[in-house]
């Protein structure tokens, strides 16, 4: 592939072994079940404010995570629960943050949109559309500065792709050959605005062209296609050849946030995505067709995951609210 944007041809040809497929199945299902439960806790009034669910987009983070090495960083916007679970953060810690409890990753002070884990190299969780793109470029700058061989995955939405700082960052990343992979999760909507109504060029993988950042369109509903594209991009970045742009064509099944009636799209459109492109069903089919698993075996996995998610919901309700003394802590670090 040359320097210019190129579209990946056709379907992936790469294979995945039984264990890998089972792992992807588990990881995606965990995100889905977790998000369903988060939606339910929201309905019960236990989660407040904004809560953006990741259902439908699971293959993107799970596939990309499979392309990473320990220590590589991840940063994203507010639709972040899936990214955190994929990075290995615990369901308990994430769910307890959603309920605003002291057992949450931010001790209840950040909420759904603001969680972090230095241990898992997850750098948030950011509520200002586009801000994480500059920040992620800075994480990559630190990798370049130290020459430590780490790569930073910087995720953003199709809506965020129209923010100026995205291009300010692209320019610097390409200029200094920073080890960053930009991943546009093109779920085709920014709140109620479809990509056709917001973007003069809807093929977002072309957005790096004027910075000499190669781009690729990827079927974001196919975890293996994501992983393969991810590997190409991550390897290039790690080799010091600079940034890469992956446009993940994906779809969110739920509203933008919990209170979104989703009047801007038809039920049929959503149903079609669920019926024909579901990322979890896709892996399920691969597993069964190859004889790697049975329906019953997969049900068993589902039951295990439900157990993990239920335990997290339980934890998120039992964990106490932050102590009032936390009101004024973490404003400054004592010098």
């Amino acid at each position: 592939m040359g320097q210019a944007a190129a579209k990946a041809n056709g379907k992936h040809t790469a294979e995945a072994g039984k264990e890998e497929l089972l792992q992807y199945y588990r990881d995606m299902l965990l995100i889905r079940r977790f998000e369903e439960r988060a939606g339910q806790l929201y309905g019960m009034g236990l989660i407040g404010g904004f809560c953006h669910l990741y259902i439908g987009q699971e293959a993107v983070v799970v596939g990309m995570q499979a392309a990473l090495k320990e220590g590589d960083q991840v940063i994203t916007a507010y639709r972040d629960h899936g990214h955190m679970l994929a990075a290995g953060m615990t369901a308990n810690g994430v769910m307890a943050e959603l309920t605003g409890r002291s057992g949450g990753y931010s001790k209840g002070k950040g909420g759904s949109m603001h969680m972090f884990s230095i241990e898992k190299a997850f750098y948030g969780g950011h509520g200002i559309v586009g801000a994480q793109v500059s920040l992620g470029t800075g994480l990559a700058f630190a990798n370049y500065y130290r020459g430590d061989g780490k790569v930073c995955l910087t995720y953003f939405g199709d809506g965020a792709a129209n923010q100026g700082q995205v291009y300010e960052s692209f320019n610097m990343a390409a200029l200094w050959k920073l080890p960053v992979v930009y991943i546009v999760e093109n779920n085709q909507y920014a709140m109620g605005t479809s990509i056709q109504r917001s973007s003069s060029e809807t093929h977002l993988y072309k957005r790096g062209v004027s910075f000499n950042i190669p781009g690729e369109e990827v079927d974001g509903m196919d975890v293996i296609a994501v992983r393969e594209a991810g590997k190409r991009a991550v390897e290039r970045a790690r080799a010091g050849e600079g940034p890469y742009l992956l446009e993940m064509k994906t779809y969110r099944y739920r509203g933008h946030s919990m209170s979104d009636p989703a009047k801007y799209r038809t039920k049929e459109e959503v149903e079609e995505q669920k019926a024909k492109h579901d990322p979890i069903e896709h892996v399920k089919k691969l597993l069964i067709d190859a004889g790697h698993a049975t329906e019953d075996g997969l049900k068993e996995i589902d039951r295990d995951i439900r157990g993990v998610v239920s335990a997290s919901a339980e934890f998120a309700q039992e964990s106490p609210e932050p102590d009032p003394s936390e009101l004024l802590t973490d404003v400054y670090i004592d010098a």
């Binding site: 940063i75 992620g136 470029t137 800075g138 700058f141 500065y145 700082q165 300010e168 320019n171 200029l175």
Partner: peptide, 26 residues
């Protein structure tokens, strides 16, 4: 030049880049 970095005219971008680098410990 690695430690004294001329940036493009891109305040929003390089301030954000700086904060990201700080989050990583620089």
């Amino acid at each position: 030049p690695k430690r004294v970095v001329d940036t493009p005219i891109t305040e929003h971008g390089f301030a954000g880049l700086g904060v990201g680098a700080a989050m990583a410990g620089l």
